[in-house]
Amino acid sequence: MSRRSHVLPGFKLTLGYTLIYLSLIVLIPLSAVVVRSAELSPAEFWQVVTAPRVLASYRVSFGLSLAAAAINTVFGLMLAWSLVRYSFPGKKLVDALVDLPFALPTAVAGISLTALYAKNGWIGQWLEGELGIKVAFGPLGILVALTFIGLPFVVRTVQPILEDIETELEEAAASLGAQRWQTVWHVVLPILLPAVLTGFALAFARAVGEYGSVIFIAGNIPMVSEITPLMIITKLEQYEYPAATAIALTMLAASFVLLLAINGLQAWTERVTGRDR
């Protein structure tokens, strides 16, 4: 393989350009977070990243991101199943619109969800007026925003896998006497599991770092509905650069762990389904 590929030109040029551009735009600026954090002593660093208000923001960010990813896993699986396995009117439109959260700017999503769930909004007047459930300007609002932006992930990871499953597999199970629910539970779901988990992890990772759609609807009440990215902004606005950097480093560490987990899950998906990426 490697000897044959020497026929093609441009290896040094393209790889060199790739590495330089990657370093200039991504690696060197990112390294600034690590280097500048070192301006704090370990004790100061610890004090910043474990201050009560920051700790509360981790609980809000990670807790609600987990909840939103879980909601999207359940409904995303149902939506993917409906889109692949059933025919219904308007299916193509639904399929195309699933990607809306990828394409819609987060600030637009943020103000729209706020208008929708505020006390006088279409959903808010009913939830808050009739049922007394306050969504906008509180933690539940954050949950709604994070659910919106994470919606496509599980659908889009599960959909291609579900499409590729051979019907013979399920027919074999049925002919061996399995009930339909047994076939789905013991045959189909195990094949989908890695993809479902990958979608869950992607939605979770996206939600943890999300800023634009959340700040409008969150109400941003200290200790109650402040997300971690907002804490970075707050420190920046007070010109506390080292503190902002320290919190950013904690977030980077978390996203790095998530990235590794996602890579592992994707490798597992490929093994289970025999698909190439």
């Binding site: 977070v33 770092g209 971690t228 990215p229 970075i232 950013a248 980077l252 996203s255």
Partner: peptide, 12 residues
């Protein structure tokens, strides 16, 4: 996988 806020911060 980097939060947009962190993406802005690094250039600051």
């Amino acid at each position: 996988s980097v939060s947009p806020v962190v993406a802005g911060l690094i250039y600051v």
